[in-house]
Write a protein that binds this DNA or RNA. Structure first.
Lengths: 348, 348
DNA sequence: CTGAAAGCGCTTACAG
DNA sequence: CTGAAAGCGCTTACAG
């Protein structure tokens, strides 16, 4: 039934050359006479021949594949992947394709023993790690990877003494941008929704930016304005409700992720608070839905395309033996309608 | 620097057995004495040994990998992948992992010559094809795949004479559900936003459901209420504006995708039309953001998890040589706030 | 510029 | 239950 796949030997026979010459011709080796090369390549095309990746990989020890490990410790039953990561994935696949690499995707539970396998099994030449989550758990995995001499790049914060290199958002700057925007609009009592724990260094950095901006404006951060939360719409909702119920008295919210902001938005609207008239709201991430909620969410945009590209560029560099460095990507405040403009009826 | 990866031969030497026995032990062959197997496996664990996939694949002609080809003929510069596909991807990766398969992701342009390569290069044992787009272009690719005897499953409609098998949403039923809901709410002039061309059979089927529901209610479909559109927020916006400007006189809209519905929503709100008080709006897909727009969008939910699972199950079955069939998955109407309830102030 | 040959690391009949 | 051997389809020194 199934016609057997042609091999380089089949082509050699048809072309009347050795199999080695076929291999060289297909890889565009300058060692092959141009006419011979052309002839071989046209036969290959005709036969729908493609180099067997397993054989080539076995020989060269390269798979031309990058494994994208998205780790995801959400305990929810319908664990919806964070849209931000999906958008990263999209961009990473595109960028990798440009470099001639395939992307193998794996959604990892934190407790899994993934750290070595992809590389050791020669399925991938390098790894890109994506994921928020408990940093301390994560850390162990990184150590194991470094020890095994695996090529890997991390999406995330640059953390002192952390093994490996990372590409990350300059979260502190982003936190400052968000907070300063609220301050510029005349907001004085700015709540912070999200974790500040060192277990989530990127969130902690955003918080640090928040604190820094407040202090630069001569405002002492008020602990009563901090509502801790994980990272889900539900938790954002709960955090905002909590602030409301405690009568924390706030006129602005900086939510450490868009998902939290969207949850907060729902709580505010339910409670009859107008956004932005009563409360200005800023998120972080610019996930696809940020533009579509009502009012459209002002947020700090991570440049996903640049980040994906930097990650791919770096991992490809490592695979090819070049030295690579960690990179911080500066985010950008995207002003929509959830904060109100200078000309809006915002008390100054 | 880099310590060489251990091979089965290394383990054989340490265990004092032949390399063949190591291979058998690691694959849990019953031919190996239990004690021997245990010993070998523990050595393998200690050495962080993993079977070289290239070598195993070369030998067995199996990669244990499924290529997910997402085809995407969006011409937009920042070609944001349809969130629906990303959510499919998420579920497909999870389901494949359960079956012991890796997922290789490729974002294909329609004009690319992808159809044969993944299989012929032994990078994947089978393909899953995802994508809306121009069906007629698509069709050629499918023919080529079938001719090459490639294992593939299609996400999409069951189309007569189409090569291969597919898993798809029962779009006509979905179209009926959406339309009947609007009718039940007392809406009489229901516009349809989207393509009805046979080039997009899934949209055409939703339209057929719309027509059928109208007719069942004794209403003749009115061509003036049809606003053709591609599949983007922008086109949804434009289509709704067009309906408004033409004074089409409508009290309900069935948009053939959520993205279109969200665009239409924006146009309606800009024009001062209240949703759902003035116009009831239904979408299709239940993409993640449908729940977060204001008002939350009533839509037809495709069961992404079931679809992904059916696709993976089928492709794995094909790879293992079992006969497979096409499947239609019945969607479900998810009632949110964009249509108004029976108790809302909707004219009956 | 080309060919003969070795070898990448497995799996699996075949023989015991 | 175990081993020796062949072979999957390439790539690449080595020799000409």
């Amino acid at each position: 039934m199934k016609t057997t796949t042609p091999t380089s030997r089949d082509i050699a026979e048809i072309a009347g050359v050795s199999q080695a010459t076929v291999s060289r011709a297909l890889r565009n080796s300058p060692l092959v006479r141009p006419e011979t090369r052309e002839r071989i390549q046209s036969i290959a095309r005709e036969l729908n021949y493609f180099v067997n990746r397993n054989a080539a990989g076995l020989r060269t020890h390269h798979s031309n594949t990058i494994a994208l490990l998205i780790f995801d410790d959400s305990k929810t039953v319908t664990s919806q992947l964070n849209l931000f990561f999906l958008s990263m994935l999209d961009n990473i696949v595109r960028s990798a394709a440009r470099h001639g690499y395939d992307i193998l995707v794996s959604l990892q539970q934190l407790h899994d023993d993934w750290h070595i396998e992809y590389r050791a099994s020669q399925r991938a030449d390098g790894l890109i790690l994506l994921g928020y989550g408990d940093y301390l758990d994560y850390r162990e995995k990184l150590d194991a990877l470094a020890e095994a001499n695996t090529n890997f790049m991390i999406w995330g914060p640059i953390v002192r003494d952390q093994p490996g290199h990372s590409v990350g958002c300059d979260n502190e700057t982003g936190g400052r941008q968000a907070t300063r925007h609220l301050l510029d609009l005349g907001r004085k009592r700015i709540a912070f929704i999200g974790s500040t724990s060192q277990r989530s260094p990127e969130f902690a950095a955003r918080f640090a930016g928040y604190v820094r901006s407040l202090e630069a404006a001569g405002i002492q951060p008020d602990a009563a304005l901090h509502a801790p939360a994980g990272n889900s719409e539900k938790e954002g909702y709960a955090a905002a409700r909590n602030l409301l119920e405690r009568n924390a008295g706030f006129d602005g919210i900086f939510a450490v992720t868009d998902l939290l902001a969207i949850g907060a938005l729902r709580a505010l609207q339910e409670a009859g608070k107008a956004v932005p008239a009563d409360v200005s709201l800023v998120g972080f991430d610019d996930m696809p839905l940020a533009a579509y909620v009502t009012p459209p969410l002002t947020t700090v945009q991570q440049n996903v395309e640049a980040a994906a590209d930097a990650l791919v560029r770096a991992i490809v560099g490592m695979i090819e033996g070049h030295p690579v460095e960690s990179t911080l990507i500066t985010p950008k405040l995207v002003i929509r309608d959830s904060c109100g403009g200078r000309d809006a009826s915002v008390p100054r």
